[in-house]
Amino acid sequence: MAGIVKEFTKGLWAEIPPFRLVLGLCPTLAVTKTASDGFGMGMAVIFVLALSNLIISAVRKIIPKKVRIACFITIAASLVVTVEMLMQAFTYPLYQSLGIFVPLIVVNCVILGRAEAFAAKNPVHLAVADGLGMGVGFTMSLTFLGAVREIFGAGSLFGHHVMWAGFEPFQFMVEAPGAFVCLGVILGAMNFLTAWQNRRKKAAGQNACLACAACALAPAAEEQQS
């Protein structure tokens, strides 16, 4: 049980996909013009990632090593086709606004990356926890980036007006250049925050504060990363 919780939570902060692992940047940049697009894309990725991790982990002993990448891609592609059809049936406006990026979930590095790095080596329950965690982390990042861009670029959030009356929308944010700069600044902020956390942890360590939960979790997360 503790293992499941650990695999799930690492995707939420310690290894949050687009920011920490720098994987899956194309959808992160392309579909975050509004918070709801980012959220919808994240949902589709959760579905594909959790199920692909489940299936790959379940058949990991049958797949020959040499053709494993092709197998992973086939499994992911079948799931993406499923998502595509579900979205066409139930959330057609979202499907249209995500456009070409729905089929492109297949080549989202997060999916293959997790399959190769985690699902192919771990039992089913851990793989599903990892997939769900990574998916939720991905959704959070996309929604956050989308919210930032939507608030400054259009003055609204999830389609509701949030800025004051005289607010001039900042066109730069919803165009391509804004996406790159915005993601870059967020990455920089995350690095800064981590450095600050580490400094503080070090200072706390000197005071022999072993009670803080973060200290207990940190070595495990670092071990995972290496």
Binding site: P177, G178, F180, V181, V185, L187, A189, N191, F192
Partner: peptide, 23 residues
């Protein structure tokens, strides 16, 4: 480069500026 921006972060900001030029 500021410490926190080293690597990918500054790369993305650079990409943004290039994208602005192409814009």
């Amino acid at each position: 480069v500021p410490k926190a921006f080293e690597g990918t972060a500054i790369g993305l900001v650079m990409a943004g500026l290039m994208s602005l030029a192409f814009f």
